[in-house]
Amino acid sequence: MLTASEVTKRFGGLTAVDSVDFSIDRGEIVGLIGPNGAGKTTLFNSIAGVYTPENGSIAFDGEELVGKSPHEIARQGISRTFQTARTFNESTVLDNVLAGAAFGKKDSGSLDEERENVWEYLEFIGLEDEAEADASSLTIAHRKQLELARALASEPDLILVDEIGSGLTPAELGELSEDLQKTRDEFGISVFWIEHVMDAIMAATDRIIVLNQGEKIADGAPKRVQQDPHVAEAYLGGVEAQR
C-alpha cells in the first residue's frame, strides 16, 4: 500500500531522515521506534506532505505523494493523529469528528449526511455521550480518542499515529492500543504508529521499523527487533532491556 524508497530530508546541515526504505501492506499495524531525534516524526511529516523530501519516493497505492499538499494526501486516503492532540477545543466533540468527514474524505456528502455518519465513529471510540460537549472539557485520553475518531471519519486506508501514549496512564494507553487494533480488525485500516512505550507497541503491532540518527537499522517482527543487538545498543539500553 505504502512504499518509500531512499527518502531523505535535511534541515540545513542536519540530515533528519537518511535514505530510508520501507513498505506497509494493507491491513498491517506497523510500529516506528527510535531514540529522540531519530527522525520518526520527520518521516511522518514527509509522508503527510508537511515536508518535501530532498530525495526519494513515497508512493501510496502506486501514486507518488512527494510534492502533494497535506489536504491532497488526506483525501487520497492517509489521515493522522499528533503527539499533542490537536482538537478544535471550542467546537463540540461531534463537530470535531464531523470536520474529518466533511474535509478529509475524497467524496464527502452534505453536512447533514455526514453528521449522521460520524455517530458510527463516536460510538466505536466510546465518546457518544460526550457528543455535545466542547472538546476543551475532555481529558487528555479522551482528546486522543477524539483525534482517532476524527481520523477514522475521513475513511482512510492508512492512519499515521504519532505517540498516542504521550501523557497517558498505562491503563489509558492500553485502551487506546486496543482501539488501534480494532481500527484494523473492524475497518480494515492500516496503522503506522510511533511510540516510546515499548510494552504497548511490542504487544500491538505486526512489525516494527527502527530509526537511529535518521537511518533505518531494523525492520521485522517485534520479538526479533527487540532482540536485535543494534536496536538494543541504539535505543533499548543494551542487553538488560531485552530481559
Results as ranks from 00 to 15, higher is better:
Ser5Glu: 05
Thr8Leu: 00
Thr8Ala: 02
Lys9Asn: 03
Gly13Glu: 11
Thr15Ile: 10
Thr15Cys: 12
Ala16Gln: 02
Val17Asn: 00
Asp21Gly: 00
Phe22Trp: 02
Ile24Pro: 00
Ile33Cys: 08
Pro35Lys: 06
Asn36Val: 10
Gly37Trp: 04
Gly39His: 02
Lys40Leu: 04
Thr41Asn: 03
Phe44Leu: 05
Ser46Val: 02
Tyr51Pro: 01
Thr52Gly: 00
Glu54Phe: 09
Asn55Val: 09
Ala59Val: 08
Pro70Cys: 07
Ala74Tyr: 00
Arg75Gly: 05
Arg75Pro: 05
Gly77Val: 02
Gly77Ser: 07
Ile78Asp: 01
Thr84Trp: 10
Glu90Gly: 11
Leu98Ile: 11
Asp112Pro: 10
Glu114Cys: 11
Arg115Tyr: 12
Arg115Thr: 14
Trp119Phe: 13
Trp119Asn: 09
Leu127Thr: 01
Ala135Ser: 12
Ala135Ile: 04
Ser136Ala: 14
Leu138Val: 03
Thr139Met: 05
Ala141Asn: 01
His142Lys: 15
Glu147Cys: 05
Leu148Cys: 08
Ala149Asp: 07
Ala149Asn: 11
Ala151Glu: 05
Pro156Asn: 12
Asp157Thr: 10
Leu158Asn: 03
Val161Trp: 00
Asp162Trp: 03
Ser166Val: 08
Gly167Trp: 05
Leu168Met: 08
His196Gln: 12
Val197Phe: 12
Ile201Gln: 06
Ala203Ile: 11
Ala204Cys: 14
Thr205Met: 11
Ile209Gly: 03
Asn212Arg: 10
Asn212Gly: 11
Gln213Met: 15
Gly214Arg: 09
Ala218Lys: 08
Asp219Thr: 08
Asp219Lys: 10
Gly220Trp: 11
Ala221Val: 14
Gln226Asn: 15
Gln226Cys: 15
Asp228Ser: 13
His230Cys: 14
Ala234Tyr: 07
Ala234Val: 08
Tyr235Met: 12
Leu236Cys: 12
Gly238Tyr: 13
Val239Glu: 14
Val239Arg: 15
